[in-house]
């Protein structure tokens, strides 16, 4: 009612500059009601062509799912790194002067232990030969007068969790043993590789994010083109650019949200399908780790980035194309 009279007062007289923007709105509540109804309207519009909407959302979903899926894989691998330690070998570098006989006897004794699966012996000569062929220092080493390498016992433990440290302590205590070392080279290599892959995933995410922007942008551009007449008519009636922009921005948000939901569904289904085979595989290596479904943090982030990308994509399209549609 109050608004009614304001409106009438405004008639027939120049409005003060900048003062009339939203002057007829009934405060914050009216503003939110307006936005909510616009959001629902734009969802309704999308649902009127469900197939086209789903297609676009699916493309966005797949684009979001790929980096997310890879990230989850890497994350799981890294977490499981700790578990895989137990399948690692322990190298016992024997003191100088321990002969082959004593070394083999020690190996036999160790193999009796409950927490050790197997032990094998590498003589200094074998170690040198191996080192020569792998290290690239072959010729330098050939000129050595004496073999500087110690004999080594390689221990394959039968371990669970953090028992490795305790076992190493016990192995160190043997008088024959000079140094006991957990052999984690392959693990370190794996981590190095994973770091590279992680960067790749980041790059992929960036590229696919741009792709989502372009997809949404193009979809919104077509929507704008389809509603050209409507835009012109609404402008003639006195709609502001903000008013005309709004439904398109909401479409972008909806596309992004739908895409995010589809991505969530895709990644979680993939994890679900992979859970058993992965558990089986890690079981073979003595580990017992499970692929985890997406955490709520990651899920929210996925939906959030979907919405953000959808909004930005539509913003780009709207900024570029709406301005050129003016009544003639």
């Amino acid at each position: 009612m109050r608004r009614h009279s304001t409106q009438r007062q405004n008639h027939g007289e120049p409005r003060p500059q900048g003062a009339s923007r939203g002057a007829t709105r009934s405060g914050i509540r009216g503003y939110f009601t307006l936005h909510l109804s616009m959001a629902i309207q734009s969802l309704g519009r999308l649902s009127r062509s469900p197939f086209a909407t789903l297609m676009t959302a699916a493309v966005i979903g797949i684009a979001l799912a790929m980096p997310t899926g890879l990230h989850v894989m890497m994350d799981n691998l890294q977490k499981s790194g700790g578990d895989w330690r137990q399948s690692t070998q322990i190298s016992l570098f024997l003191r100088a002067g321990i002969n082959e006989d004593r070394a083999l006897k020690l190996a036999q004794r160790l193999e009796q232990k409950a927490d050790i699966q197997s032990v094998y012996y590498i003589s200094p000569e074998q170690a040198l030969a191996e080192f020569q062929s792998h290290s690239g220092f072959g010729e330098v080493l050939e000129n050595l007068q004496t073999n500087p390498l110690p004999a080594v016992l390689v221990v394959n433990p039968r371990l669970h969790g953090s028992e490795a440290e305790a076992l190493i302590e016990r192995l160190k205590a043997y008088p024959e043993v000079d140094i006991a070392q957990l052999d984690m080279q392959w693990l370190q290599r794996l981590f190095a590789i994973m770091e590279i892959v992680e960067r790749g995933v980041l790059l992929l995410a960036l590229l696919l994010g741009i792709a989502v922007l372009l997809i949404v942008g193009n979809t919104i551009r077509l929507a704008i083109e389809n509603r050209r007449d409507e835009i012109i008519i609404t402008k003639l009636i006195g709609a502001t650019n903000a008013f005309i922009r709004r439904p398109f921005l909401y479409s972008g948000i909806w596309y992004g949200l739908l895409g995010g939901l589809i991505a969530l569904l895709l990644v979680n289904s993939a994890i679900y399908l992979l859970q058993d085979p992965v558990a089986h595989l890690t079981g073979l290596y003595g580990g017992g780790f499970q692929l985890q479904l997406l955490s709520s943090d990651i899920s929210l982030m996925l939906l959030g980035s979907g919405v953000l990308l959808g909004l930005s994509g539509s913003w780009l399209a709207v900024g570029r194309h709406l301005r050129h549609i003016e009544p003639r």
Partner: peptide, 21 residues
């Protein structure tokens, strides 16, 4: 340009081709 919509709201415009949605 920004103020054009508010000026237009002070008038009613009728077109030969109706321009309905």
């Amino acid at each position: 340009r920004r103020r054009i919509p508010y000026v237009r709201r002070q008038m009613g415009i009728i077109f030969q081709d109706h321009r309905l949605l």
